[in-house]
């Protein structure tokens, strides 16, 4: 049990500095009790329409959303949305071209996780582009999966890409197949297959864990062009070191907008960047206030501003 001194404004009739007739045994939020009860009474929760303490958060949300909507509007109006070059996605043609010239297949690995994982979905988005290029070059793409649902989704993605390229007759569903749910069973199959068939281009786009380096090293050893993409931070260094090109974290999710070039997607991507820029600027301002405040003392204006930023705005 903790005795608290709530602000006088929190409870009507309470005098500032007076002994609190309250006992708090309740949850805390940002350093302030959120539920108070008079001694001897049971706390009564209530549902409010709006938490006035979080109006700042509403404002921040509105700014980010407005940024996204404005950028989508600008993109739709024809204003060019510059997205920086992503060599990994530009290299798709190069990788598929290499496979075509060498008369070998393209291997696409969509990761270990199922369709409920956002990275798997992002990977299948890129698979659409890869298979379209494969169809145009009249090459072959092989997609072994670790989840049956991913296999179904991948088949539909590849079929749609072949159809869009006008080569539906070349689509072979047997090249998109399920291997096993077991992590290392799947990896053992992949490395064995890579060593035997020596695909000229390998794509690893999805959720990866310990197998990332095993796959990337095998691909490197067989002389394939390798393009990887994952948001799994711990696996990124392995992919960067062993693959030719790597989509890093956010880049992987931006791939869809980058590849499609559609105004809505590009505008949304830009809008998110505006939000990130805004968040980063708050971080910089906060850091500066806290630093200056710690030098000038807790009663200084920067220290108070920092406390307000943390306690009220970012509450």
């Amino acid at each position: 049990m903790t005795v608290v001194h709530p602000p006088s404004s929190a409870v009507p009739g309470l005098l500032a500095g007076a002994d609190p007739p309250f006992l708090s045994c309740l949850a805390w939020d940002a350093g302030a009790p959120w539920l108070l009860a008079a001694a001897g009474e049971a706390p009564k929760p209530f549902l409010g329409f709006l938490d006035p303490g979080r109006l700042w958060l509403l404002l921040l949300l509105a700014i980010v959303c407005a940024g996204v909507v404005a950028c989508i509007g600008l993109a739709r109006s024809g204003r060019p949305m510059k997205v920086r070059r992503m060599p990994a996605l530009d290299a798709v043609d190069e990788a598929v071209g290499r496979a075509t010239e060498m008369g070998r297949s393209v291997l696409f690995v969509p990761g270990l996780m199922d369709m409920n994982d956002i990275e798997t979905i992002a990977g299948l988005t890129v698979l659409g582009r890869v298979s379209r290029t494969v169809a145009e070059y009249d090459a072959q793409v092989e997609v072994p999966t670790a989840r049956s649902l991913v296999m179904t989704a991948a088949r539909e993605t590849v079929e749609a890409a072949y159809l869009a390229a006008g080569r539906s007759d070349s689509f072979n569903p047997d090249l998109i197949y399920y291997v096993t749910d077991e992590q290392f069973g799947y990896v053992a199959y992949l490395t064995g297959m890579m060593s035997r068939q020596k695909p000229a281009a390998c794509f690893y786009l999805g959720k990866f864990f310990a197998e990332s380096l095993i796959l990337a090293e095998t691909g490197n050893a067989i002389g394939a062009i390798q393009i990887a993409g994952t948001a799994e931070v711990s696996q990124l260094p392995f992919f960067v070191a062993a693959c030719d090109y790597t989509l890093i974290g956010e880049e992987f999710f931006a791939a869809s907008a980058y590849l499609s070039g559609e105004p809505d997607q590009l505008g949304s991507l830009k809008g998110q960047d505006v939000g990130k820029l805004f968040a980063a600027s708050i971080l910089v301002v906060g850091t500066a206030l806290v630093t200056v405040g710690s030098i000038l003392g807790p009663e200084s204006a920067p220290a108070k501003a920092a406390a307000y930023l943390v306690g009220e705005i970012l509450r």
């Binding site: 060599p87 190069e94 394939a224 062009i225 990124l236 960067v240 090109y245």
Partner: peptide
């Protein structure tokens, strides 16, 4: 030349030059 395998290090994380 295009279609050439690249050799990378971790230092190339943010500067992945491509062929061509």
């Amino acid at each position: 030349l295009s279609g050439v395998q690249q050799q990378r290090t971790v230092g190339d994380t943010f500067s992945q030059s491509s062929g061509g």
